[in-house]
Simulated assay, not measured.
Amino acid sequence: MAAGGTKIKPDCQENVESLREALKKDSDMGEQIKDVPDKALKRFLRAHLTVPEAHKVYVKCEKWRHKYGVENIKPEDPAIQSELATGKGIVLEERDKDGRPIILVTVQLHDTKNRDMEVLTKFTVYMLETLSKLSDQGEMDNICVLFDMKDFSLRNMDYQFVKTLIMLLQRYFPERLGVCLIVNAPTLFSGCWLIIRPWLDERTRKKVAFIYSEEELSQYIRLDVLPRKLF
């Protein structure tokens, strides 16, 4: 039944092998699938819950990665350098308390009216790929995204980018998000959240936590690993 459309247990080794065998038979995948670790296949099974759906999405994802040139995006790329220079998204040296790599996003440094969506998307793909590779080095194969909302204003609210980020995570980096911490969200953001929340599936919504104190934040991250005080 697991090989059909019935929902399965994603971490069951039998289902992982069923997905691997299906991908081996796919003309678009061939022998390369033998080098893919089990935990990568489990992420697709957790996200899509049936072997056929996980198979279909995995193949689409690999085609997109090749077409977009994910492996060829380097930090020396001028587009990446320009975004890194803003400091609005930085990967921390330390991990969260569950062993996830952390990206700190300083929202006030983003100006919706002064950004190139193509460049920003490329930068986001680069950062997600960087974080994914870091997560593969540890036991936890997902990431921690920390949004610092201090001094947030509506000029920072970029709905198009939020939609793009959600799309990338759902389609091409499934189950990579472990936890999303939204720190210092002002009352102004509550209206924005009412718009954003329905765009997230239930599984993703459960990964979002609003943080309003150092005590709350310290449940997820050691405060001394942060580059600055957030409160």
Score class of each variant (00 low, 15 high):
Met1Cys: 12
Ala2Lys: 01
Thr6Arg: 09
Thr6Gly: 07
Thr6His: 13
Lys7Gly: 00
Ile8Thr: 09
Ile8Cys: 10
Lys9Arg: 13
Pro10Arg: 01
Pro10Tyr: 02
Asp11Gly: 06
Cys12Trp: 09
Cys12Ser: 15
Gln13Pro: 08
Glu14Cys: 13
Asn15Val: 06
Ala22Pro: 02
Ala22Asp: 06
Ser27Ala: 06
Gly30His: 08
Glu31Gln: 08
Gln32Ala: 04
Ile33Cys: 03
Asp35Asn: 15
Asp35Gly: 13
Val36Met: 06
Val36Ala: 02
Pro37Ser: 06
Asp38Phe: 04
Ala40Cys: 08
Lys42Ile: 15
Phe44Thr: 06
Thr50Arg: 09
Val51Asp: 07
Glu53His: 09
Ala54Val: 04
Lys56Gly: 03
Val57Cys: 06
Glu62Cys: 06
Lys63Glu: 15
Lys74Cys: 07
Ala79Leu: 15
Ile80Gly: 07
Ala85Pro: 13
Ile90Met: 12
Glu94Lys: 08
Asp98Leu: 07
Asp98Pro: 00
Ile102Glu: 08
Val105Leu: 14
Thr106His: 06
Val107Thr: 14
Gln108Leu: 09
Gln108Arg: 15
His110Tyr: 08
His110Cys: 03
Asp111Ser: 12
Asp116Gly: 05
Asp116Gln: 03
Val119Met: 07
Thr124Asn: 11
Leu128Ser: 09
Leu131Gly: 05
Gln137Asp: 15
Glu139Trp: 14
Asn142Leu: 08
Leu146Arg: 04
Asp148Tyr: 15
Ser153Pro: 05
Leu154Lys: 01
Arg155His: 13
Phe161Val: 01
Leu169Ser: 13
Phe173Met: 01
Glu175Pro: 10
Arg176Pro: 00
Arg176Gly: 12
Leu177Met: 12
Phe189Ser: 01
Cys192Gln: 05
Ile195Gln: 08
Ile196Asn: 07
Arg197Cys: 05
Pro198Val: 01
Trp199His: 02
Asp201Gly: 07
Thr204Gln: 01
Lys206Thr: 00
Lys207Met: 00
Val208Gln: 03
Ala209Asn: 12
Ile211Val: 14
Tyr212Gly: 06
Glu215Leu: 11
Glu215Asn: 04
Tyr220His: 15
Leu223Ser: 08
Leu226Asp: 14
Leu226Glu: 10
Arg228Asp: 13
Lys229Thr: 13
Leu230Ile: 11
Leu230Ser: 03
